[in-house]
Design a protein around this nucleic acid. Structure first.
Lengths: 147, 147
DNA sequence: ATAAAATACATTGTACACAATACAATTTTA
DNA sequence: TAAAATTGTATTGTGTACAATGTATTTTAT
């Protein structure tokens, strides 16, 4: 006898995460529209607000994105003057991504976004932070398994 | 004084979910490559394995996807002969999506995928199922807020 | 019965994702 | 030290996502 409960949509953890990811990203949209950037671009900005310079490779490691995604994304952000793209002097292979003044200034307008999102979720902070740490645990297990 | 801990990448629930979603989807790839379909196409197949006929609208409601995404996706699946697309006789606006014999047969090859994925995660089932129900709770809250 | 509104889907345009491939700069190796 | 392997990005091609818009069909209101 063949059991197929595992093939039902509502039993799929991956589908829940996939759907939640898109729904959550959509929540950011009105705020990010104000800044003129998309969610993946917002992620890049968050990294640059922490570290003004970063190589493409390290940026990719942080965001789990490869050059196929990041190269055109960063070019768009460069044309918006949020960052600069230039080769490293020491090693011409390395692309250095540097935040601009305009990019730095954007942080002031972005500062309130996380709180707005949290409020709009109107869930207990403790529930959300426990959820995050459990997802991070899953993510870590998947990273380890990769090697 | 401006607090910006909320703008740090590692504090972002949304980023964790976004990264986990892509990592998990990637886990399906080798199995789905065997079937010749992508992850979103697999989701459609799961729905059709439960219900041989469904309208585009209802399919979109289940997967949280709109016609802009589903129309070309279903056309590709139709050209693979996994499903048929035809207008309803009663209401010409409605597009009926029907699984084909080939689509039904694919279920046999797919039946083992959920278990393979679960094993590859090598986490406690109870941890994963609790994680899923917490994500579903978040998702539900976001759905309710929409209206 | 008919104009207006609503519905269901398709199309267009932009922006990711990502596998696969290409390529130039650097390191390693024979 | 020249060839081979490695590294870091860029490019190409396919497939989503999704907002905005267009269109044909059906329903509703007059």
């Amino acid at each position: 006898m063949i059991r197929d409960g595992g093939l039902k949509l509502e039993n799929q953890l991956c589908f829940s995460i996939y759907a939640a990811s898109r729904a959550l990203t959509k929540k950011y949209r009105p705020y990010l529209d104000n800044l003129g950037i998309t969610y993946p671009q917002y992620l890049v900005m968050m990294v640059l607000w922490e570290r003004e310079v970063i190589s493409l490779k390290e940026l990719g490691n942080k965001l789990y994105l490869d050059s196929g995604t990041l190269t055109p994304l960063l070019k768009r952000m460069e044309s918006m003057e949020l960052l600069k793209r230039e080769r490293s002097k020491e090693d011409e292979r390395i692309l250095c991504v540097t935040i601009t003044e305009k990019g730095i200034k954007m942080k002031k307008k972005a500062i309130e976004i996380p709180e707005c999102i949290l409020k709009s979720l109107n869930n207990e902070i403790s529930f959300l932070s426990e959820l995050k740490s459990n997802i991070d645990k899953l993510l870590l297990d998947m990273k380890v398994k990769e090697e």
